[in-house]
Amino acid sequence: MEISFAGKRVLVTGAGQGIGRELAKKLVSCGATVTALSKTENYLKTLKDECPPIKIVAADVGSSEIRAILRQHGPFDCLVNNAALAILEPVLETKEESFDLLFNVNVKGVFVVSQEVARMMVDNKIQGSIVNISSQASKCALRDHLAYCASKSAVDMMSKVMALELGAHGIRVNCVNPTVVLTAMGRLGWSDPAKAGPLLQRIPLNRFAEVEEVVNVVLFLLSDKASMVNAVEIPIDGGFLSV
């Protein structure tokens, strides 16, 4: 199945590395005009070197300036909310600062970016698509993940409300919920067999996800091939949540 984004303007947040970076490059190869947003300018510069057609924007989705920045670069036909933080602390040691920071980026950031992009879609009569990168952690309690699990659960429900209200404008909103993804950081963080082993045992496919496996699902949800898919949460977890 070939997917084309010719003539489509796509915003990808958290595009400096990992899933967002590979997704941005793949979208360009499918014909999209891509705006890659990240708070880390060095990552964006190397992305631009690898893929010159990409437009880069250095900005933090949790900043007070993000609305004005989005207005300068929009409108967009598609949005991927990929920017997120993970701070792992046990329940009794979770700091209020950590909790606030995760919710500011993982939840409020998704809300603000989605609201501004959706407003531009409505103003320009664009029947667009929004995909939010959630996590299997939104559905399953994980040790040391109090704030992270809570933030991703909030993303799931927020996405459903967006889908409900924006559907009248022809705007679809969906989530993907990956297990551990083997980005550079994922490989480093889960390289210890003692840590990875118990989680792998709960995954019927007995492995973690590759970046491309997440990118491919996001591409489908963004595309016109998924024109009747709305308000779903797609696990990319090898069966972890289903058995």
Rank of each mutant, 00 (worst) to 15 (best):
M1P: 14
M1C: 14
E2A: 13
E2Q: 14
F5W: 00
A6R: 11
A6Y: 12
K8A: 02
R9F: 12
L11Q: 04
L11P: 02
V12M: 02
G14A: 05
Q17G: 00
I19G: 01
G20A: 04
R21S: 10
L23Q: 00
K25R: 13
S29C: 11
C30K: 14
A36W: 03
S38F: 02
K39E: 09
N42F: 10
Y43N: 11
L47F: 01
K48N: 06
D49M: 13
D49L: 15
P52A: 10
P52R: 12
P52S: 12
P53I: 14
I54M: 02
K55D: 13
K55G: 07
I56H: 06
A58F: 03
A58N: 08
D60L: 06
D60Y: 09
S63R: 04
I66W: 02
R67V: 13
I69N: 00
L70F: 06
D77I: 10
N81R: 09
A84Y: 05
L85V: 14
I87H: 07
L88H: 09
P90E: 12
P90Y: 12
V91E: 11
E93L: 15
K95R: 15
K95T: 15
K95F: 11
F99P: 03
L101F: 06
N106M: 07
G109I: 04
V110A: 03
V110K: 05
V110L: 10
S114M: 12
Q115T: 12
Q115C: 06
V117E: 05
A118P: 04
A118Q: 07
M121D: 07
V122G: 09
D123N: 13
N124P: 06
I126P: 02
Q127P: 11
Q127R: 15
G128H: 04
N132K: 05
S134V: 14
A137S: 13
A137Q: 03
A137R: 01
K139P: 05
R143G: 08
A147Q: 02
A147F: 01
Y148V: 07
C149H: 00
S151Y: 05
S151L: 06
S151G: 09
K152G: 00
K152Y: 05
S153T: 12
V155L: 08
D156G: 05
M157H: 15
M158R: 11
S159L: 03
S159R: 06
S159I: 00
V161A: 11
A163D: 07
A163T: 06
A163Y: 01
L166N: 04
G167V: 08
H169C: 11
G170Y: 03
V173D: 03
V173T: 10
C175H: 00
N177P: 01
P178C: 04
V180T: 02
A184K: 12
M185E: 14
G186S: 05
S191Y: 01
D192R: 14
D192G: 11
A196L: 08
G197F: 09
G197P: 09
L199V: 15
R202W: 11
P204T: 08
P204L: 02
N206S: 15
N206L: 10
E212W: 10
E212V: 12
E213W: 03
V214T: 05
V214A: 02
V218W: 00
L221G: 02
L222H: 01
S223A: 10
D224H: 09
K225Y: 12
A226N: 07
N230K: 05
A231Q: 10
V232F: 08
I234D: 06
I234H: 07
I236S: 04
D237P: 07
G239F: 11
F240Y: 13
L241V: 00
S242L: 06
V243H: 12
